[in-house]
Computed example of a mutant assay.
Amino acid sequence: MNLQSIQAIAFDLDGTLVDSVPDLAASANAMRVELGLPELPRDIVQSYVGDGIAVLVHRSLTADHHGTADDDLLERGFPIFMRHYAHNIANATRPYPETETGLELLKTLGLPLAVVTNKSEMLAVKLLKELNLMDYFSIVVGGDTLPERKPAPEPLRHAAEVMGVPPENMLMVGDSHNDFLAAKAAGCPSVGVLFGYGDMTELSRNEATKPDWLINKLPEIYEQLRGTEQQVSFE
């Protein structure tokens, strides 16, 4: 990875910038209880996160990672989830340790920053505002901003275009297979966070989902980019 070429950075949201599972799980279980279903363990709901709210609702209703709820159940469940989550989106969701420090440091380098998430744009913006993170970002691309979402490359290409940089000069920071598949398809270098929801050991075994670089905290990106004269190849 040629660090000198990095001109912008895009971040996934859930599992990368913030730990949102407590509130997502609470809303999923509020939905299930209202429908007369038993609650799900938080770690099960966590395994359902990453492909957008609609998919999360399907999985939570069926208690199956590959499940699809029937139309009647979805029609009853989805509004319950959305109502509860919209009103409780930041009850227990918090930025990961040193996230704000990392964003502050990266802004000192003059790099435009983006959020590219499969969460709906409305909910992503609402969450960022409630956590006082919105001002760090030039653009938020949600799962419903464009016809395609991650792992398709279009959201990353769109973010790069808006920020005025080639995709190959934009770093994608994420925690899931969707992030790295999208980055590779868009031609973006990628960074995997070791503190998120994804299993980086497992993701790194597959060339298609292997990030270029792994970090334990966001300030590590600043520490590497600060040395503008160096060119580093990460295994």
Score class of each variant (00 low, 15 high):
Val162Phe: 12
Val125Cys: 05
Tyr48Glu: 02
Ile9Ser: 06
Ala152Lys: 14
Phe11Ala: 04
Asn169Lys: 15
Gly36Met: 08
Leu156Ser: 07
Glu161Tyr: 11
Phe78Thr: 05
Arg226Ser: 01
Val232Cys: 08
Glu220Cys: 13
Leu146Thr: 13
Met172Lys: 15
Leu74Glu: 04
Lys126Thr: 04
Tyr222Ser: 09
Ala10Tyr: 05
Pro41Thr: 15
Asn88Leu: 05
Ser176Tyr: 01
Glu75Trp: 06
Leu181Val: 08
Glu223Ile: 11
Pro112Phe: 14
Ser47Trp: 10
Ser204Pro: 03
Cys188Pro: 03
Leu194His: 01
His158Ser: 07
Pro167Gly: 14
Thr99Val: 14
Asn88His: 12
Pro211Cys: 02
Val116Trp: 02
Leu13Val: 13
Gly110Tyr: 07
Val165Trp: 01
Ala159Ser: 01
Arg42Trp: 09
Leu156Val: 12
Lys107Cys: 10
Gly192Lys: 02
Gly143Phe: 05
Gly143Ala: 09
Asp19His: 14
Leu181Gln: 06
Phe137Thr: 09
Thr99Pro: 03
Ala114Pro: 00
Leu111Pro: 02
Ile44Glu: 04
Glu148Gln: 15
Ala182Asp: 02
His87Ser: 07
Leu218Asp: 00
Leu61Arg: 14
Asp71His: 14
Ala25Asn: 08
Met82Ser: 03
Thr201Asn: 03
Ile89Gln: 10
Leu127Met: 13
Thr201Lys: 01
Leu218Asn: 03
Asp179Ser: 11
Asp70Leu: 11
Leu56Val: 06
Ile53Gly: 03
His84Thr: 12
Gly50Tyr: 01
Tyr136Arg: 15
Ser190Gln: 09
Arg76Trp: 04
Ser204Trp: 01
Leu3Pro: 01
Ala26Phe: 07
Ile139Asn: 04
Gly192Ile: 02
Gly36Ser: 08
Gly15Asn: 08
Glu98Val: 12
Tyr48Met: 15
Gln46Ile: 09
Ile80Asp: 00
Ala26Val: 09
Phe78Pro: 00
Leu131Gln: 04
Arg226Asp: 00
Ala10Leu: 14
Ser20Glu: 00
Glu229Tyr: 11
Val49Thr: 03
Glu121Asn: 12
Pro151Val: 12
Tyr48Asn: 12
Cys188Ile: 14
Leu61Glu: 02
Thr62Trp: 04
Asp212Ala: 07
Leu181Cys: 08
Ala28Trp: 09
Ile89Ser: 11
Glu235Asp: 07
Gly227Glu: 10
